[in-house]
Nucleic acid binder design. Structure first.
Lengths: 150, 150
DNA sequence: TACATTTGTATCGCGAACGATTTAATCTTT
DNA sequence: AAAGATTAAATCGTTCGCGATACAAATGTA
């Protein structure tokens, strides 16, 4: 009975800390990304493109788990900043191919220092590297489960 | 060198799965919350108030790690739906006290079944309860670290 | 008592997220 | 080849999240 009520306590939930941690980590990125004049989701798109510099909206969406109604305006903003180009595919005119511009590509060198800086923010004497590593393992597994259910 | 570039790969990052898992869990909540005609952040506010049915905007913000520029419009929407009341405190007229309405209070009984349903979505043969429990422990610890740094 | 500072909310503008719907292109089936 | 189904983007409307800013009430201080 009281167990039942306790299930509605914030501190007993898994989803709230996930939600809050996500917001706070984005917040930690913000000052570094501000220097590059990009947002966190825009940074994710750039990371995707730095690995494969030519991908369709669909492919980007599958990797980031985002749909076109989110990506299209996001990519348009990136195009306005001259980070990417958007062109209809000639093979299949339904698809839009996103490619990096010179500016978008060269931004990678400026971004190289970011992961280290972020890692420092996560560092703390109360948490070991092993614990973070195990955590990431479970998180990736969990994300896989969630992605398969949505 | 290649280590350096690899640090910018999506699959090596901790923040992306955190961000994606947060969005997907919210998505899993959505159909259940739609039945109650509330959103996930609104559900969080209700959970806070079910524990202590009278709290200031400030207190709610500290628990959810949200600021007034997010909470004020959110609470106003909840007021419009007759879930809560907002009144200026008499002790300190700068503060706004949020209280549950009858409707907001009675919604708890309908919400009681949600945590179980969500737990089922997280259940999977590839992940044990112990692993989830360890995961939540690290997540809470991590959230504490992040909250102290922001 | 004056004046400065802090605190608690609120307003504004922008960039996501996302459900629902639309449009156009391509594929399938007959 | 025409009709119908599927797919890829885009559009629209609502709700968050948050930086910057405003403002009044409360508090601290000379």
């Amino acid at each position: 009975m009281s167990d039942n009520l306790a299930s509605l306590y914030l501190e007993n939930q898994l989803c709230f800390p996930l939600y809050a941690a996500s917001r706070l980590t984005t917040k930690i990125y913000t000052p570094f990304l501000n220097e590059l004049d990009i947002t966190y989701p825009q940074y994710l798109v750039l990371m995707i493109l730095w690995q494969h510099p030519e991908q369709t909206v669909n492919e980007i969406g599958k990797k980031l788990l985002l749909e076109s109604n989110t990506l299209t305006p996001l990519l348009k903003r990136m195009e306005q900043k001259d980070l990417i180009q958007r062109t209809r595919s000639k093979n299949d005119e339904r698809s839009v191919v996103v490619t990096l511009t010179e500016k978008g590509f060269s931004m990678r060198s400026q971004a190289l220092s970011i992961p280290q800086k972020i890692a420092k923010s996560f560092q703390d004497e109360s948490i070991s590297k092993e614990e973070v590593s195990v955590f990431k393992g479970t998180l990736d597994k969990l994300l896989g489960i969630l992605a398969s259910k949505v």
